[in-house]
Simulated assay, not measured.
Amino acid sequence: MKKRYHRYFDQYKEYKLLSFFYTIILVILYTCQFFVNKQTSQYSLLFSIIIFYLLALTLLMLSYSTTLMAFKKMNAKDANAYSFVAIIKNPVNSIAILFVLIFLYVSAGYNLAFFVIFGPFLYGLGVLFSLVKIHGGK
């Protein structure tokens, strides 16, 4: 197990900065959404819609790009560029992934133990079945 861990860690070592970038973007968007919801100005609904759109786009790009980097062996730059285009070209797949993410978000609120145990599995299964056309069905 230790050898396998080191092999996979070394194989995906160059994606640490990309992972950090996605994490920071998601944290900033979620924090901005929290503060926008606290506001009572006339523009808070507009800002909330924009932030939700950017949050959904970021989560979809993360899902698409990690699938492309893992199955198609693309580099990070090409995978992110292709994932942005694929989100637009495959709206049914994108909506399916968003439904999986919304389900997992709601399930985390209702039952954290269910989310911790089944969340990663259901997310991975949802992404793989939604993007089978993109990653080739391996």
Rank of each mutant, 00 (worst) to 15 (best):
R4H: 11
R4I: 15
R4S: 10
H6M: 14
H6W: 15
H6V: 13
R7C: 08
Y8R: 14
Y8E: 15
F9E: 15
K13A: 13
E14Y: 09
E14Q: 14
Y15R: 06
K16V: 13
K16L: 13
S19K: 07
S19C: 05
F21E: 06
F21P: 00
Y22S: 03
L26Y: 04
I28M: 05
I28T: 14
I28F: 07
C32A: 14
C32L: 15
Q33P: 02
F35L: 06
F35E: 03
N37W: 11
K38D: 09
K38S: 09
Q39N: 10
Q39I: 14
Q42F: 13
S44P: 02
S44Q: 12
L45C: 02
L46M: 12
F47L: 13
S48F: 12
I49G: 08
I50K: 03
I51A: 02
L54G: 02
A56N: 03
M61I: 10
M61C: 08
L62D: 08
L62S: 10
L62G: 09
S65K: 06
S65P: 07
T66D: 07
T67I: 13
T67N: 10
L68H: 08
L68M: 15
A70N: 14
F71N: 09
K72H: 05
K73T: 15
K73Y: 14
A76M: 06
A76L: 03
K77D: 10
D78T: 08
A81I: 14
A81E: 11
Y82D: 10
F84A: 10
A86W: 10
I87D: 04
I87P: 00
K89V: 06
K89T: 09
V92S: 12
I95Q: 01
I95K: 00
I95C: 01
I95S: 01
A96Y: 09
A96S: 11
I97W: 01
F99S: 10
F99A: 12
V100Y: 08
L101C: 07
I102G: 01
F103G: 02
F103Q: 02
L104D: 06
Y105F: 12
Y105L: 10
V106N: 06
Y110N: 09
Y110C: 09
Y110M: 11
L112Y: 15
A113N: 12
F114T: 07
F115R: 01
V116N: 09
I117G: 03
I117Y: 05
F118Q: 02
G119V: 05
P120A: 04
F121P: 02
G124R: 04
G124C: 07
G124Q: 05
G126Q: 03
V127A: 08
V127F: 07
L128W: 07
F129E: 07
F129C: 04
S130M: 00
I134P: 00
I134N: 03
H135W: 15
K138M: 12
